[in-house]
Design a protein around this nucleic acid. Sequence first.
DNA 1: TTCCTTTTTTGACAATTGTCAAAAGAAAGG
DNA 2: CCTTTCTTTTGACAATTGTCAAAAAAGGAA
Lengths: 187, 187
Amino acid sequence: MNALYSCISHYHPISSGAWEALSKTLKQVEIPRNSFLIQEGMVCNNLYFLEQGCLRGYYTLDGKEITYWFGFENNFITSFYSFISRKPGIENIQVLEDSTLWSISFDALNKLFDFHQDLERLVRIINEQYYIRLEERLMAKQFKTARERYEQLMETSPHILQRISLGQIASYLGISQETLSRIRSNV
Amino acid sequence: MNALYSCISHYHPISSGAWEALSKTLKQVEIPRNSFLIQEGMVCNNLYFLEQGCLRGYYTLDGKEITYWFGFENNFITSFYSFISRKPGIENIQVLEDSTLWSISFDALNKLFDFHQDLERLVRIINEQYYIRLEERLMAKQFKTARERYEQLMETSPHILQRISLGQIASYLGISQETLSRIRSNV
DNA sequence: TTCCTTTTTTGACAATTGTCAAAAGAAAGG
DNA sequence: CCTTTCTTTTGACAATTGTCAAAAAAGGAA
């Protein structure tokens, strides 16, 4: 749980009381490669913190799997739309490597908010940071070529390339696998 | 201020104490067409609520103005990256129609959070809803053609088409003005 | 190792979208 | 009303990316 504590502190330090309450509520989840944390049609009831391993979020469109994010160590993970709106989502979260997560349910989290304002503040701040990241991604997709997006990914997240298959990276970048393969070959 | 109150209530009702404190802190801003709320290189210190009028956010790339959002009545407006990170942003917010806004500064808002947890919760919830919208937009850009994105915009926000010029809509959709013009002509 | 499966690369061609330039149309100011 | 400016449309062509199909390479299991 140390990884989570230091990750949290990086965003917004919380009181020892809040940390105690949170850590009592968290449940550890060990989940093997190729299993699913969430599947489409389900309401996502949990927010996860990924301590070790690797996940991907994808949905299915015209029979194809469209990957739109990856999760690595120290990422917060959930099927955001479903978790927030409390409605069934279209997202699948697949485990790409044997993973260790910490889990908290929607209800438990909201109960904690009532007693620990600093926890709610923490979540607000994390949300804001994740919003900024998403905004950057939209900008990149909107105004850069596939090659530029790939080069940007290599700079900011070279670890992705070592752990994720080409087809899934292509899908994440919003291009076909063949295009990505060609980008890589004729550097 | 009624519009703001009812907008807020729609997201998350707040106590009368919180509303009183908030409404005392808000400042009304009247700003004419073609002026700027924020310009690039500035730190954005304010969060706005747009009561009446119309704005756009854009930045400059290779000498071109790239519009990436529009604001209409009942929208919360800020240069998000700059407001949150407290760093200079690259965003300009231009007033497209004479507008009436309510304004609160970063510091004032954070002070209010310390006294009114329900206000912080409100902001957290609004952030979450705006995150979901952004996610939808990224998905649309990633996996739909320009024509599909245009048709989706016509369905969900037909009012945009009546108030915003074609070039700016094209930029928002991430396509050239000529392409959008052609999409419209050969229905 | 050898076989089998999955992933990546390559080729040929088509579809989508962008760029540049010019014309047509609409809006704003005097 | 006319002139000027800004916006939208159209044409021609180029660049980017997608699709389908097949080959090559890499990875896993027995």
